[in-house]
């Protein structure tokens, strides 16, 4: 479904402006991937108890919403949210399925993984509005990571 939407949007742009279409297709693919990661992270953090996890889950859901807005501006719809833990990426799934003792380390691993995804995306993105949104979300994940590490008794700024 979502691949078809991406294809339709990119095809329409390719007919109108070939150079722009290629760039937009690349940005749309990156956004699609980031939305999938954010949806999965929101799902995984929602499975944990505690104020910080709840806060992070809400933030991730807001991130996915903002990214969907950017993707819609490119003329394509976003991926469907996950319906269960089995639909999550491996890092999010490990958190969703973690026992109480393993949860802090897996929350940290998930935020580290998201930061890496944004680090990579920020090298590729070019459209100013998308860049600013992605940079702000990367900042949010950096904050989550620092707070989770502090909460776990680790150095928050390794």
């Amino acid at each position: 479904m979502r691949r078809r939407e991406l294809l339709i949007g990119a095809t329409a742009l390719a007919v109108l402006r070939p150079g722009v279409a290629s760039a937009a297709q690349g940005e749309a693919g990156i956004l699609d991937s980031l939305i999938t990661r954010e949806d999965a992270a929101a799902f995984a953090h929602r499975t944990r108890s505690g104020a910080l996890s709840s806060r992070i889950a809400r933030d991730e859901a807001e991130h996915a919403k903002a990214l969907r807005t950017e993707l819609a501006a490119l003329g394509t719809g976003g991926p469907d949210p996950p319906m269960g833990a089995r639909a999550l990426d491996p890092v999010a799934r490990r958190l969703a399925e973690a026992g109480r003792d393993a949860a802090p380390a897996r929350s940290i691993a998930l935020e580290e993984s998201l930061l890496e995804a944004y680090d990579e995306a920020l090298r590729e993105l070019g459209e100013p509005s998308i860049l600013r949104t992605a940079a702000s979300i990367a900042a949010s994940h950096a904050q989550h990571l620092a707070l989770l590490r502090r909460d776990a008794g680790l150095d928050p700024l390794p």
Partner: peptide, 14 residues
């Protein structure tokens, strides 16, 4: 730029 964004944001949270 990416490093400045993430480092400064983490520092602000701390």
């Amino acid at each position: 730029g990416t490093g400045l964004v993430t480092e400064s944001a983490a520092d602000l949270a701390v």
